[in-house]
């Protein structure tokens, strides 16, 4: 019971970190970045390569994969999304899907479709919590999720860039008039989101150590669901949504059916959205005529 709960929270923490990327990009660029899930996969492969081929330590490999993913995020944003700024949101959505295909197939060419066994980065003993045993990866995941959450809250509330991000998400036109560089703000958002995706990729692959070009797809969709669940555009909402989703998934797997666990997760999402159409912590939008 306790171990299910902790495993659920740790899976949820991974979803939450991914969902943060979705929610920030959505809040600022008003786009659903479907390629986000594949950045997770790239992050996983980068950590895999840096430990297996280059012999990096755990911490340096995480930093390395964050660096690569941040650069990847910025490059993708500049090449594929920036020319479409101001185009219809569907056009951007399809472009994001194109980027997602591109990343998956590039990974397929580079690393082939054979699953790679992800190395155990956190070589720590299992931990006794009450009368159940929990893997240390789960605890590391939860801890890093809390750290990221605090850092991100500090960043958006206190720093100049964070304030600019909030202003752009509130009203892009007005923010531009106030002298905020909208383009660079959006780039920074993509950079942060992709960096977080790299962390999520490493954590996800540590918990489920098989790495394939399609590894990121399903967690990506679920994290997106989590972001909507908590109210898209809201950072605490992404956190809450992610953790709830993870806990529901693990409990559904444990007590109901492994095969139907995804169906249960999505059914809960639908019920929540019907009762509260803007998600758990979503802002209520007043409609203008």
């Amino acid at each position: 019971m306790v171990s299910y709960l902790i495993n659920g929270i740790s899976l949820g923490a991974v979803y939450a970190i991914i969902a943060l990327g979705y929610t920030m990009v959505y809040g600022i660029a008003k786009m659903l970045n479907f390629a986000h899930g594949d950045v997770i996969m790239v992050g996983g492969y980068m950590a895999y390569c840096s430990t297996s081929y280059m012999g990096f330590g755990p911490l340096t490999s995480v930093l390395f994969s964050m660096l690569v993913c941040t650069i990847l995020g910025i490059v993708v944003e500049k090449l594929a999304y920036k020319p479409l700024r101001g185009a219809s949101s569907l056009a951007v959505l399809i472009t994001a899907i194109g980027v997602s295909y591109f990343l998956q197939n590039a990974a397929l060419l580079i690393w082939s479709s054979n699953p790679k066994a992800f190395p155990n980065l956190f070589d720590l003993p299992q931990v006794q919590v009450g009368d159940s045993v929990v893997t240390s990866v789960a605890l590391v995941t939860i801890a890093s999720c809390i750290v990221i959450m605090l850092a991100l809250t500090f960043f958006t509330e206190k720093t100049k860039m964070g304030k600019a991000m909030r202003a752009v998400s509130e009203d892009r036109g007005a923010a531009a008039l106030m002298g905020i560089n909208v383009n660079s703000t959006i780039s920074v958002t993509f950079a942060i989101g992709s960096g977080l995706a790299a962390v999520a990729g490493v954590l996800l692959c540590s918990a489920y150590p098989t790495l394939m070009p399609t590894t990121g797809a399903m967690p990506g969709i679920k994290a997106f669901t989590a972001a909507v669940f908590g109210g898209i555009g809201s950072i605490p909402g992404a956190m809450l949504g992610g953790i709830l989703l993870g806990v529901i998934e693990i409990f559904a797997k444990a007590y109901v059916s492994t095969q139907l666990s995804d169906a249960i997760v999505f059914a809960v999402l639908i019920v929540v959205l019907i009762v509260k159409p803007t998600g758990l912590l979503g802002r209520k939008l007043t409609e203008k005529v």
Binding site: A80, P83, L84, R85, G86, A87, S88, A91, I94, T95, I97, G98, V99, Y101, F102, N105, A106, L108, L109
Partner: peptide, 22 residues
């Protein structure tokens, strides 16, 4: 490379058809 080419074609078509609008 075909799916890679497919992805690139998709992105390019979207950018070309929408950049005029932009």
């Amino acid at each position: 490379y075909r799916m890679l080419v497919y992805a690139i074609v998709l992105i390019l078509v979207m950018i070309i058809t929408n950049n005029e609008k932009a």
